[in-house]
Every structure is written in C-alpha cells, then in structure tokens.
Amino acid sequence: MSAAASSSSTQALEFGVPGVQETRPGCLPRLRRLVNVPGCEPDRVNDLLLLSPSESHGSCGTDTESSENCNSHVVFFPGDIQNFQQDMALQPDGAQWLSWSLELVALTLARRFPNRHIWVIRASRMYLHKFSCYHNFVESNLFGAPEHSTDYGAFRHLRALLSNGMEQAGLSNLLPPKGVGDRVAPGFTLAVVGFSKGCVVLNQMVYELAMTRADPELGPFVECLSDMYWLDGGHPGGSETWVTDKRALGELAASRVAVHVHVTPYEVRDPMRAWVGREHGRFVKKLEELGARLSQKLHFEDEPASIENHFRIIQDF
C-alpha cells in the first residue's frame, strides 16, 4: 500500500486487490481519504473514503470525468472494529479482520454498486480502538449504544458531510452546500447501507423522516434517498436494535424508499440477545403490513452462527 498526500485534508490511496480488474497495466483503483470533513456543526467532523465510478473499475480518468459520468451515490456506515487498514493492523483485535477494513470494503461495494460514487464514513470515535460510536449522527454512549430521537440531525449532518466531501474531492455542483436553498443537482440519487453497529444511523434516520421530509432545505435531499440497506444490525444496548415504533415505520413505508433487510443467525438467533431477533421480526412484519417496498433475506441459515459469517454478509447481500 502506498499513500501520498494531495492536500492537507485529502489523501490518495492505491491498492492492488485480487479480483479487482484493471483496464490498463499499472492503473490501480484509487481511494481518496478525506480527513476531518465538517458536517452540520463545527464540532461534528468525520473522516471519509471516496471511490468514484471510473476509479472503481481501475480507470485512470480524471475527477471531472467521474463526476460527469454519474451522480448516484452509496454511503456505507461500518461496524465495530472496522477502521482504516493501517490503523487496524496496529491493533491486536483489528489485525485479524483486515480483510474488512474500510478500504477493502469500499472496493467490495464498488463491485456491488457499479457506476456509483462509494462513500465510507468512519465512525468519529472508536472506544478502546474497537467500539464504533456514531455520536455525530445519533446520541450514543461510549460503546456506541444509541438513544434515538426525532431531531438529532442525522440527515442534516449527512447532507453537510457529502456536500463538503464533494467539494474537497473536486466533485463540483453535485450537492450545493447549506444555504443555497433546496437545490439538488439533477439525477442525484442516494442509497445508504449500514452494517452491524452502523445500522444505528439508519435507525436514527427513520425516526427523523417525518421532520426532514417537511423541511424546506432537507426535504429535496431526503426525497433523493432511493434505498436503505440494513446488514445484520446490532449494538451493545439492550433494546432498539431495530426500529419498532409504529409511527416511525409508517413514515418509512410512506416514503416509498426501498428497504432491504439482510441478517444472519449471528444477530437474529443469538439466545443471549433474544430481543434482537424479536425486534427484527416486528420491524419486518410491520413494514409488510404497511405495504412498504421491502425485501429481506436470512443468510447462512444452515451454517453455525459466527462472526465470520456476520462480516461475510457485506459480500453476500
């Protein structure tokens, strides 16, 4: 792996990864690390990884070419342990899971979602180097267990992160910054994917849907949300692993966002955390009753529950 700083806030990272095709010799996929990207408030910042469409296929096209080809975006919220590769390699608990680093997951997602900009949002805090905390998106304790509300600002923060991240990366005119009114560039679409702990952000978004859809500034951005993917959601709290509030789920169904639910026995069949499976069942059943655009799948059903299969859902969904 080599890294070269292109500015004080952006780094270009190059990886040779088995299975990633190169269109020309010596042209490797390039992930841009955007450091300390500001969000909706001065004290809310996150590090991002960006992999643009032409780059995800090994093309050496320019940033301008990438932004002109496509204005569809996928945002991924990782789970515990997952961090930048160089940071994971230094931690005993992280080194064994290097194949699920943020960089390698970005490349996996690029194959799953071709011709889209892939954004990976690093948790702003990693307690004990392994417990991801998304307190910029949802009120959380040190271990990342959430306390949901209807107005914390998850959508507002995401919009600001994407707008400022696009500006840093040279993807101009895709999502104007706050204060420009309700403008969203033509063709802009957004899908959000949460894995494990990262699903707490999607849950928070569900609670905020009613308010944000009615907001003159955020409404047009939220209307561009096409898909939400829950991948084996879980967190250390004793409840609210899945949204079960009927009013919040009614708003999700009414939004016509496509809801994709992918789980493994590791989360939904753990007898020590039986509430996770019960909440998952209530989440799915209520959305079905409400006529939501819902798809669901239990992966690795005939295999023993394992953390390995928990991670594998990132490749299998």
Rank of each mutant, 00 (worst) to 15 (best):
A3I: 14
E14R: 09
G16F: 12
P18G: 11
V20C: 15
T23F: 07
L28R: 13
L31M: 12
R32K: 08
R33G: 14
P38A: 04
P38I: 06
C40A: 15
E41S: 14
E41D: 09
D43E: 13
D43N: 13
R44N: 00
R44C: 05
V45M: 05
N46E: 12
L49Y: 12
L50V: 04
L51F: 04
S54H: 07
G61C: 09
G61T: 05
E65P: 00
E65C: 02
S67M: 10
S67H: 03
E68S: 10
C70M: 02
S72F: 02
F77N: 04
D80H: 05
Q82V: 01
F84K: 08
Q85L: 15
Q86G: 04
Q86Y: 09
Q86M: 10
M88E: 09
L90N: 12
L90C: 11
L90R: 15
Q91P: 04
G94M: 11
L98W: 06
S99A: 15
L109V: 14
R116Q: 15
V120D: 08
I121G: 01
R122N: 11
A123H: 07
M126H: 06
F131E: 00
F131L: 10
Y134C: 03
H135F: 08
F143P: 01
G144E: 05
P146V: 11
S149M: 07
T150W: 06
Y152P: 09
A154M: 05
F155V: 04
H157G: 00
L158W: 05
S163L: 11
E167V: 02
A169Y: 06
N173K: 10
L174M: 15
K178L: 12
G179Y: 03
V180H: 14
R183E: 13
R183Q: 13
G187N: 12
V192C: 14
V193N: 08
S196A: 09
G198Q: 02
E208P: 08
L209A: 14
A210T: 13
A210Y: 10
R213E: 11
L218C: 12
G219T: 12
V222W: 08
E223D: 14
E223V: 10
S226G: 05
S226W: 03
S226D: 14
D227A: 06
W230S: 01
W230Y: 15
G234K: 02
G237A: 02
W242S: 04
T244H: 05
A248E: 02
A253L: 03
A254R: 05
R256C: 01
V257P: 00
V259L: 00
H260I: 02
H262N: 01
T264W: 01
P265F: 00
Y266L: 03
Y266V: 04
V268C: 00
V268A: 03
R273G: 01
R278K: 11
R282P: 00
R282D: 01
V284Y: 05
K285P: 06
K285T: 07
E289A: 10
L290I: 01
L298D: 07
E303T: 07
P304H: 07
I313S: 11
D316V: 10
